[in-house]
Write a protein that binds this DNA or RNA. Structure first.
Length: 420
DNA sequence: TCTGGGGTCCTAGGACCC
DNA sequence: TCTGGGGTCCTAGGACCC
């Protein structure tokens, strides 16, 4: 891999250590802040799972996505707190803002991960090593946001990503240019991002477990086994080849909301009421981001965990709660008519997002087909303004709630079921 | 132990057009 | 009467990530 050193990239991945745990502790210093065995997640009596666990709790085998009830059996002394939703995104923005002052290019990869591209900053930073820069960034973020992060670094995004696991917690790990393959050779294929349980099993059946095992396989075989694209992707991945850029301008592609119920729901009217609330929720997010959407998707998970979805694309981008709901209700009815059985989860998603004004060419000819009127849009905007002033609780669609909730009210913890 | 909620990307088949 | 190939869009489902 001969690379022009002048064009070698210097990429860092900043990853917050047990982010939800840290935020929960900052929010509640006297309670969660003092519990070394801490689990953040859904309720243990309901259908909750672990979102994040303190490193002390992980020592007991607690992992994220594990049912909370199971986690408590492994670690009975742990304290369980709900996810502090509003504070999470607020804290995430704080970290990103801090990073933006330290690096020319920042891309948020998730709520707790940020890629930095520091290529070309060598002179700016007085020729300090990437490792020194990473430690400096760690200290600055900690001081400014009280969030502890770990940093992985290398010449490619995928290398920085893998280095981060070595850096955790509260550390730094840099893979020097030229050392990429030696670094990868220490890993299992399962360690590679994008290689999940299904691919791991397919590889294992062919005797491939370590990255080194797969290096010996000809690309033709990989493509024969896994298909042309996937095979070629795997060939590059085990060699750490990755041209992807750190791109701060990446746009969101979908907006969705889903709820798992405390108990399965089999009543169509009940489901439609819950659908109305979900449609209002995605609609509010859509308008807050100044988007419109062309495709609505409804997702239904049956009691036996069978997950089904229907979607519909309309010619003209839409934005009002009423139009989103009307389309979603038809989709839900189709899903229910195919299999009417108790449901455990209902969700609504929006894709085909376009900024306001970016109209689809077809709209010219099909104006009015969908039937979203100016009045529909105005009603939704009024709902948004009321929610802005008085809190989301003021207007629950289809129902009046007596008392307005103040904006200053701390976010309610773990109202995971939306059962208000 | 009985499985959350927010996303991204890929595949494959059918419709439709050229 | 039988028959091509490529491109794009839509839909359903699945793998994967945090």
């Amino acid at each position: 891999m001969a690379v022009d050193p002048a064009r070698e990239r210097r990429i860092l991945l900043v990853d917050c250590d047990a982010f939800f745990v840290q935020v929960a502790r900052l929010e509640d210093p006297e309670g969660a802040g003092k519990a070394s065995l801490l689990i953040v997640g859904g309720s243990p009596t309901g259908r909750g799972v672990v979102t994040s666990a303190s490193y002390e709790a992980r020592a007991y085998g607690v992992r994220s996505a594990m049912p909370t009830a199971h986690a408590l059996r492994l670690c009975p002394k742990a304290m369980v707190v709900g996810v502090p939703r509003g504070v999470i995104s607020q804290k995430s923005h704080e970290v990103r803002d801090a990073l933006a002052d330290l690096s020319p290019v920042v891309q948020a990869a998730s709520v707790d991960e940020f890629y930095l591209d520091l290529s070309g900053t060598e002179r700016l930073f007085g020729e300090e090593t990437l490792e020194r820069t990473a430690w400096r960034i760690r200290e600055a973020v900690l001081e400014r946001t009280k969030i502890s992060v770990s940093l992985g670094g290398g010449t490619r995004r995928v290398i920085a990503k893998l280095a981060t696991t070595r850096a955790k917690p509260a550390g730094v790990w840099i893979v020097p240019p030229g050392d990429e393959q030696a670094f990868l050779n220490q890993l299992d294929l399962a360690d590679l991002p994008g290689v999940g349980p299904a691919l791991v099993e397919a590889l294992r059946k062919r005797g491939l477990v370590r990255v080194e095992d797969a290096l010996a396989v000809q690309p033709e075989w990989l493509e024969k086994w896994f298909g042309q694209r996937r095979g070629a992707w795997l060939y590059r991945r085990i060699r750490g080849m990755d041209n992807s850029r750190v791109d701060p301008s990446e746009q969101r592609k979908s907006i969705s909301a889903e709820r798992t119920f405390h108990e399965d729901v089999n009543d169509d009217d009940d489901l439609e009421r819950r659908l109305l609330a979900l449609a209002g929720s995605v609609g509010a997010t859509l308008r807050r981001k100044n988007f419109r959407a062309r495709t609505v998707t409804v997702k239904l998970r049956d009691h036996d965990f069978t997950t089904r979805q229907h979607s519909r694309t309309v010619p003209e981008p839409i934005e009002s709660n009423s139009t989103i709901y009307e389309i979603a209700r038809e989709l839900l009815r189709e899903l229910r008519s195919k299999r009417r059985t108790p449901s455990r989860l209902l969700g609504v998603g929006l894709t085909g997002l376009a900024g306001e004004g970016e109209s689809h060419p077809l709209a010219l000819f099909e104006e009015g087909v969908v039937g979203e009127s100016e009045r529909d849009r105005n009603v939704s905007r009024v709902v948004d303004r009321l929610a802005d002033r008085f809190g989301d609780g003021v207007l629950v669609p289809g129902r009046v709630i007596g008392r307005a909730r103040s904006r200053e009210r701390p976010p309610h913890h773990d109202n995971k079921d939306g059962d208000r």
